[in-house]
């Protein structure tokens, strides 16, 4: 167990180092970041001065060292547009993104798991077919289109829910539903297939033969065993959700990190882009690390592999 922990810790460290290299490299993909950062009408003199000021004429490895040193102290430079520390901007927007992501997770899991269980228990019933068709559609729907359609129906036609910005809990419903749809569909299908597999096992038959009440068999004997893969996938879905939040926030004008990043990309505000990309990737890596450790804890079989 301890050995596994240390190994995972070391791996996570390596991955974070790689994340920093990729984040650094994004800006240097074209060779000379000056062309990206300065407006086209800048003179050759301006460019040369800027290149020197920013240290772009140093060897790449020196520049990376400087970037990494800054990143470790949380310093990604000032935002060109807001003239504030880039990381500060990202952290200011983080609560909105976390709120949206958690709401999406909550909505999708609380709908998907019951649907998955019911579909498995009542296999081939009308409910099963309808549920799985909806899940298949949900998996095929692009996030951005779903968002626009929800705005169209609930915001524009029915005028039931606010379509833009942040406010009370009603502002959260449409964006969270949009963001959560894919996870919901995936979790529902996964819950169904896991439950189907376990319901066919012999110990379930034994439990039934013993006279355990049907719902007790389903919830206490089957669901408990189906829970591990479901929980793992849900944990990994956090990454999908963080990625999806970028688009969802743009559609619903939700003031989170995703919208900030997209705007920063439009404005060529690269310190903010780098700070956001780095932060989101680190969060994802750390979530994975925690999920993995929890997984080892929940399922002792993993430890002895």
């Amino acid at each position: 167990m301890k050995k596994h922990l240390i190994r995972r810790f070391f791996q996570t460290f390596l991955v974070l180092l790689g994340v920093s290299i990729v984040t650094f490299a994004i800006l240097h993909l074209t060779g000379d970041p000056t062309a990206l950062l300065l407006p086209q009408e800048a003179t050759a003199e301006d460019r040369a001065r800027f290149r020197h000021e920013m240290g772009f004429d140093d060897p790449l490895i020196v520049q990376y060292g400087r970037f990494l040193k800054g990143a470790l102290r949380g310093d990604f430079g000032l935002s060109f547009r807001h003239n504030q520390p880039a990381l500060q901007l990202v952290w200011d927007r983080m609560p909105a993104t976390v709120q949206l992501t958690l709401a999406a997770m909550l909505i999708s899991v609380s709908i998907a798991v019951p649907i998955g269980i019911l579909s498995a228990v009542k296999r081939n019933s009308l409910l099963d077919h309808v549920g799985m068709v909806i899940a298949l559609l949900g998996q095929s729907m692009p996030v951005f289109w779903l968002g626009i359609m929800l705005i169209l129906v609930f915001g524009v036609k029915l005028r039931l829910l606010p379509a833009f910005g942040m406010g009370g809990i009603d502002h959260l419903i449409l964006p969270a539903l949009t963001l959560g749809m894919f996870t919901m569909a995936r979790t529902a299908r996964l819950t169904r297939s896991e439950m189907l597999e376990i319901l066919g096992q012999e110990y379930i038959r034994t439990a039934r033969a013993k006279g355990v009440p049907p719902w007790s068999v389903i919830l206490r004997h089957a669901l408990k065993n189906a829970a591990i893969p479901i929980v793992t996938v849900i944990g990994l879905e956090m990454g999908t959700l963080l990625g999806g939040a970028i688009i969802t926030e743009t559609i619903f004008a939700w003031p989170g990190v995703g919208r900030l990043t997209v705007q920063a990309i439009y404005n060529r505000d690269f310190p903010v882009v780098q700070a956001a990309v780095f932060t989101l990737a680190c969060i994802f890596v750390l979530i994975n690390f925690v999920v993995d450790i929890l997984y080892t804890y929940l399922d002792p079989r993993v430890r002895y592999e």
Binding site: Q11, L14, V15, G18, V19, V22, G239, T240, L242, G243, G244, I246, I247, T261, A276, V277, L280, A281, C282, F284, V285, N288
Partner: peptide, 13 residues
């Protein structure tokens, strides 16, 4: 490890 690094980034981002 390269795969892990790649997966750390939200693909769309």
């Amino acid at each position: 490890r390269l795969a892990d690094i790649q997966l750390a980034f939200p693909f769309i981002l």
